[in-house]
Design a protein around this nucleic acid. Structure first.
Lengths: 157, 157
DNA sequence: GGCGATAATCTCGCTTAACGAGATATTACC
DNA sequence: GGTAATATCTCGTTAAGCGAGATTATCGCC
């Protein structure tokens, strides 16, 4: 529900915000397409992305963390993991240091599946970025960082 | 599922793609937050956004078009409209030119609700954009346009 | 070193979003 | 004017996610 906020800005800039939103919507649709194409649900795909992000950041990917990131309660989290495990995309591993916890490992087959689908899309964007000079790339980075900061800030009261 | 695609690009650019994805995810979370805060479901919010986009583009917002954009079948589409109508956010209007069709009008109260929630967020992004010079704005526009083109292109076989 | 409090995950039952199939009403084609 | 095509809705079913509570493991305290 994007329409014009408070007044008094360049109208061109508002158009950029609309573009950003359109990209976000596109991304969601692609995620959903990848999901149905592989017998999954959008939430399952979000879960895989979340687990890969955690792996990249070297965070321990526990069931609880996953549920928190996805906004699911514990029952829903268990269900997501069950589905992913049944498809062979994720393995449950008891944490030997704290045996209450379940660590989640994304299987290589799932990573390959994601790369097949998203690789060409990412490559398309990268090809455009390669044609940018450093100042332009920096402008993009500052814009995205600002958007990330604004949209990720803690919920309003 | 974002990880490294084919090789041979600036690693900094890949980081920009990750940032873009993060923003898309943030946006989805905010959408979900707005939904639950107003007794709706994420799909309902996506429907409202879709209807407002159609209004801005001066397209006729029919039930069928809405369902197609959301990827729902006709039963699901009817259900979404029922929920929005029950909350008073949308009105069903018979198209007098083709009396099979239902036109959908977003009520002003719903628009106000969206502006209250998303206005400050949009404003935050606009404030940053106002500090950009025209060349930087153009870089952002080209980047977003490219991403939109890549992500919105027709489904792969 | 054992005991209650806390934490992490799972089980059960329920609500309901979305699906498939088919009904209904309106328009377009020949 | 009758039949095909289109737009929406109804009905019954599946399963995603929730709330409540059970289960198992760890930690702090005396």
């Amino acid at each position: 529900m994007p329409d014009h906020p408070e007044p008094d800005h360049e109208p061109d800039n508002l158009q950029l915000v609309h573009l950003l939103r359109a990209v976000a919507v596109d991304f969601g649709l692609r995620q959903a397409e990848f999901a149905t194409r592989n017998g999954m649900h959008p939430t399952d795909v979000r879960a895989l992305i979340c687990l890969l992000d955690a792996a990249r950041a070297a965070e321990p990917a526990t069931a609880g963390l996953l549920g928190a990131r996805l906004g699911l309660n514990s029952a829903g989290t268990t269900a997501v993991i069950d589905r992913l495990e049944r498809l062979g995309h994720v393995a449950r591993i008891r944490d030997e240091h704290d045996r209450r916890r379940i660590l989640l490992r994304v299987e290589p087959a799932a990573i390959r599946l994601g790369r097949e689908f998203f690789g060409p899309l990412i490559d398309g964007v990268l090809r455009v970025l390669d044609s940018f000079d450093p100042a332009e790339r920096d402008a993009v980075r500052r814009f995205l960082t600002a958007a990330h900061t604004v949209f990720a800030s803690d919920p309003q009261p």
